[in-house]
Design a binder for these strands. Structure first.
Lengths: 145, 145
DNA sequence: CTTGCATTGTTGCACCTGCAATGAAATAAT
DNA sequence: ATTATTTCATTGCAGGTGCAACAATGCAAG
């Protein structure tokens, strides 16, 4: 009987997770690009610099879930735009020191409220379901790393 | 005091959602590529053809959350690999009729158990949290479309 | 009929991405 | 000290992606 086992892509958890993330990311990226002219990788670098001060590429790679080449290119774009500086770490000259410029700090100050508002929108849309979603994401992110 | 409002990227919902989805997708894509030589877009097309029989590119675009160009290219690769055929719909010659070949059906029969096993792994890792995650994804997918 | 408009699928283009190779610097081994 | 090994960041390359432009077809208006 079961020659063709029932399968509906829309009930398939990996697909659903990816579809939801893609839509959210797309909407988010559009807003960032239009209002601030930055991409999501650039935003992640900025956010981490805001959060942790001077860091290296490797630092960001470890904490922000991005390949080092992606970090490197995002950092180069941010440097070209004047939002960060790249300097050589004097104690270990293999390392870079990425640092926000005043313009970068000002940009972060403008982006942060938009990011928080976006997250608030998501939470509103989710209502009480947000807790379950967070718990599920925790489980996936903890175990899988 | 609040010159620099606290912000931790790892508590930021859009980031967490995307990070989780990326890791899952990556693991999934690796397995598909190694075992079957197909990508996720190709898998989605195959899955929809398995589920719905003959369909057009536009059909898949609407139901599988992919741009038409992405569908078109995935379909071309699948055709080149001999897994589907592309024919012109005789009643509306703008439309294509995508159809699984016997090889395509055989491939789907091999992929489906792997997909189900992967989903089962996710469910195991999540345990009872899977319900909350599903509910949250529902909310995001329903409202956002 | 024909003329204009909408729809379907493909493709050119510019961009982004991951991976591997590379160069530079630090560390370990002998 | 010299040599090998490891670490860090960048870059070349091949391939995937979205978007806009396009050709082909269908449909509607006159």
């Amino acid at each position: 009987m079961t020659d063709t086992p029932d399968f509906d892509l829309n009930d398939f958890l990996p697909y659903r997770l990816n579809a939801a993330a893609s839509r959210i990311s797309r909407a988010f990226a559009d807003r960032y690009r239009e209002e601030f002219g930055i991409s999501i990788p650039e935003w992640r670098v900025l956010a981490h610099l805001h959060q942790s001060g001077d860091v290296s590429v490797r630092d960001i790679e470890a904490r922000v879930d991005m390949e080092k080449s992606k970090v490197s290119r995002a950092a180069s774009r941010l440097e070209a735009s004047g939002y960060i500086t790249k300097a050589v770490n004097t104690v270990d000259r293999r390392l870079l020191v990425l640092r926000l410029t005043p313009e970068g700090k000002a940009l972060v100050a403008r982006v942060l409220p938009v990011a928080m508002a976006f997250q608030a929108e998501m939470r509103t849309r989710l209502g009480p379901l947000v807790e379950g979603l967070e718990a599920g994401l925790n489980a996936l992110l903890d175990t899988k790393s």
